[in-house]
Design a protein around this nucleic acid. Sequence first.
DNA 1: AAGACGGGGGC
DNA 2: GCCCCAGTCTT
Length: 346
Amino acid sequence: MENVLDILLWYKKNFRELPWRSTQDPYKIWLSEIILQQTQVVQGLSYFDKFVVKYPEIKNLASASEEEILKMWQGLGYYTRARNLHKTARIISDEYQGIFPDNYMILSKLPGIGDYTASAILSFAFGKPYPVLDGNVFRLISRLYDIHLPVNEAKNRQVFKNVLDELIVGTVPSEFNNAIMELGALVCRPENPRCKECPVSMHCLALKNGTVDMLPVKLKKNKPSIRHFNYFYIRENNHFYLVKREDKDIWKNLYQLPLIESDSQIDEKSMPQLLASSWAVGCDYSLKRQSQARHLLSHQTILATFWELHSKDVPDFVNETYKRVNLKNYTKYPVPVLIQNFLLSL
DNA sequence: AAGACGGGGGC
DNA sequence: GCCCCAGTCTT
């Protein structure tokens, strides 16, 4: 297609210099792709650099602890990515002698590697003609061909794949994939697309039909639910307590202050009852409501209240799941941004 | 097929 | 306030 040549030419003149673009090391390609899942380049950049310095090869990642990797990942979100990064590093080190497989079926079975990431690794590291289909590409193809199928419906995926499978023929796969994503990110943007700068605007059916603003079509998502978190900053002799989140829930395997979740906001008068019924608190303590915070996630709104609980000795409800940490020395624990912000505000 | 899963940035 | 981002996994 004449489309493709124009896009490739545009890319060669306008691409951003990014660290993962100057390597074909499958390890670094993989690492960058995991970091960039649902994450903008500017947000992931510093994390990539940090990880490459600390873990230059996959074996370094494999021999690290999950907790250390979560700490490195702190603030980036979607922590399943970090846990899967660790799992896959160990699998490749243990079962593949540290050599990345160059096979779609094998790659896409590894934890955290789906269709997009497998295709990215195969094209960028091994030069194989697997087109990537990410948010940028969905948008670009939707507009270029004026396709009004919802992009977040699984059954429509193949329609876009078919288009890409034709377009990628005869190109250098890595250049093709970089080019379509870059064009989507820099020119064919969600809002205020820069059609005047677009190398294929003369072929763009959405532009011709005046439907650019309606595309891509997306099924709307549910509005976030609200949760009430009561966090306890339990002070005792220059220490406080952290607890690991083990549940299948947000922030799995990160640490937080001891938590009582409630159905509604709890005021200062009723909190002692809740403490008694939740943790059977019997010892002497003093309680003060410290601060409140609203923490927005894509699917939940957390309304957090921080309570300061002072006790002269170790409180009687503290058990072995509580990590007693020094006021000055908690920074090795991975914590959600919500907790990090609170601790930094002290 | 639909939800769950974070956090930051743009407007 | 709403939408988006180099998606994947579980139900």
